[in-house]
Design a protein around this nucleic acid. Structure first.
Length: 204
DNA sequence: TGAGCGATCATCT
DNA sequence: GATGATCGCTCAG
C-alpha cells in the first residue's frame, strides 16, 4: 500500500547549481526538477534481494532509519540508485524509485543526462530515456551520495514528494504488480509496481 | 529488435 | 577477489 502511495506522488529534487548557456545569461541557476513516480520496487529486511538481508552495515544503515529517509547507493562503478525508507525505525525497509515521468525542470534533466541543451523539438525516445530507469532518474535529478541519509523535504539540495492531483489519482486497476528487475535472488517476489500506460516504465 | 558485453568501483566475503 | 536493485554501445538477425 505504501508503495502504491509513493507511486501516486511527484518526486522533486533541487539539484546542484546548474548552468546552461541556453537558459542562463551569465548567472547560475538553482533548478528544481521532478516527475511523477511511475515505477517502484519494495525491498524488505528479511528479503534475500535486499541490501539489508545480511544485517546492518555502514552502507545500508540508512535503510534501518525512520520512514521518509533517502537511501542512495552507488553501484556498477558508475550509477546511483535512490530509495525512500518506509519502515519503522530499526526495520530495514525501503522503496526503490525505478522511473519517473518528467513534469518539471526538463531542460535541467536533459543537460544532466545528455550534456547538451534541450533541443526545440526533443525526440520522444530521448525524452523517455531521461528518466526510465533507476540510475537514469538519479542522473537527471542530480541525486548522488550527498543525498544519502537525508530526509524527504530537508532544506538545501532537498528532495520532496507530493501527491499529484489528488482528485485525479490513477485507479489501482491502472497499476501493474509484478516481479522485480535485475536481481538474482528472490526473483519471484511480486514487489514491483508500475503505471500501466506510462511510456516511462523501464521494463514491462 | 534483442542479445551480448564492457565500463568501473564501493562493498562485502 | 568477486559481485552488483545499471546503462549504453555494438553487432547479428
Amino acid at each position: 500500500m505504501i508503495t502504491v502511495a509513493v507511486m501516486h506522488s511527484v518526486l522533486n529534487a533541487t539539484g546542484d547549481t546548474f548552468t546552461s548557456p541556453r537558459y542562463v545569461s551569465g548567472n547560475p541557476l538553482i533548478v528544481r526538477a521532478g516527475g511523477l513516480i511511475v515505477e517502484t520496487e519494495a525491498y524488505a529486511e528479511r528479503d534475500e534481494a535486499s541490501h539489508t538481508f545480511r544485517g546492518r552495515t555502514a552502507r545500508n544503515g540508512v535503510m534501518f532509519g525512520p520512514g521518509g529517509g533517502l537511501y542512495v547507493y552507488f553501484t556498477y562503478g558508475m550509477h546511483y540508485c535512490l530509495n525512500i525508507t518506509v519502515g519503522a525505525e530499526g526495520r530495514g525497509e525501503a522503496i526503490l524509485i525505478r522511473a519517473i515521468e518528467p513534469t518539471a525542470g526538463i531542460a535541467a534533466m536533459w543537460q544532466r543526462r545528455y550534456g547538451e541543451p534541450l533541443p526545440d523539438a526533443p525526440p520522444h525516445k530521448r525524452l523517455v530515456g531521461l528518466t526510465n530507469g533507476p540510475a537514469k532518474l538519479t542522473q537527471a535529478l542530480g541525486v548522488d551520495l550527498s543525498f544519502n541519509g537525508r530526509m524527504l523535504g530537508e532544506a538545501h539540495r532537498d528532495l520532496t514528494t507530493q501527491l499529484y492531483q489528488p482528485d485525479k489519482l490513477p485507479n489501482t486497476s491502472d497499476i501493474v504488480q509484478t516481479t522485480r528487475v535485475g536481481i538474482s535472488r528472490a526473483v519471484d517476489a511480486p514487489w514491483r509496481w508500475y503505471v500501466k500506460d506510462s511510456s516511462w516504465v523501464s521494463k514491462r
